[in-house]
Amino acid sequence: MPNIVACFKWVIDEAYIRKSASGALDFSAVDYKISDYDRNAIEEAARLKGLHGGSVTVLTAGAPETAKGVKDALSRGADQAFFANDASFNQLESSQTAAILGEIIRSRIPYDLIICGEGSSDQYAQQVGPRLAENLGIPCISYVQKLTIGEDGRIMVERRVEEGVEVVEAPLPVLVTVSPEINTPRIPGVKDTLMASKKPVVTIKKEEMQAVGAARLQTIGMTATRMERNCEIFAATPEGIARFVEALQKKGVIS
């Protein structure tokens, strides 16, 4: 029965980011969420547990606010959570996150399979999964769209590559990163949320871990991109549509 670890990141919901008058990013109205594809990672872990038994542990590194995300993750079918918690952990760079998750897994969580999302919805650097696998010295298979665990302790997966799909097999333990088509994440109900509060959470402070190394990439600038245009709205009536076509002609995009 496999012990499965699903890693997730608690991120700013990018749909709430505004651009201030000065052109800077405005985070004043933001909400947070479990990064989109990490929800697929947790769902896949829960799905596999349903088939094979075993356990599902969710793991994250984040600032204290991430406690809300830990509860959210536990309401999605996990048994327990490990949470590396420090105020400085909302600015981690991929190599640091992978080092923290790696240390916790190595020292505290027995595992056969580790599942990460293909990339986080805020940074989308797509590095933590592969780096974590290297830190642990286990194989990594990225962009997985379909996953089966065989009787023989091997996994068989389909991974997306440019030319199509590669069907790949590897012995456990292994790390996979998953793409959104692998499953449809559940929407937790009231009962799931209530049950989540009763599940064990191991919180690990920065001081309890080996020193987190310095960031290797330094952010030296962050500027809002220009997306907004002045949209002219037309009615869905024959007249509205005729005017819409006229506007296209005026702009010279149809002849």
Binding site: K19, L25, I220
Partner: peptide
């Protein structure tokens, strides 16, 4: 590179 789904352009340098 793009960050926040494309809402921002992030400039980075590497220290190693």
């Amino acid at each position: 590179r793009l960050a926040y789904g494309g809402a921002a352009v992030q400039q980075v340098s590497c220290l190693t």
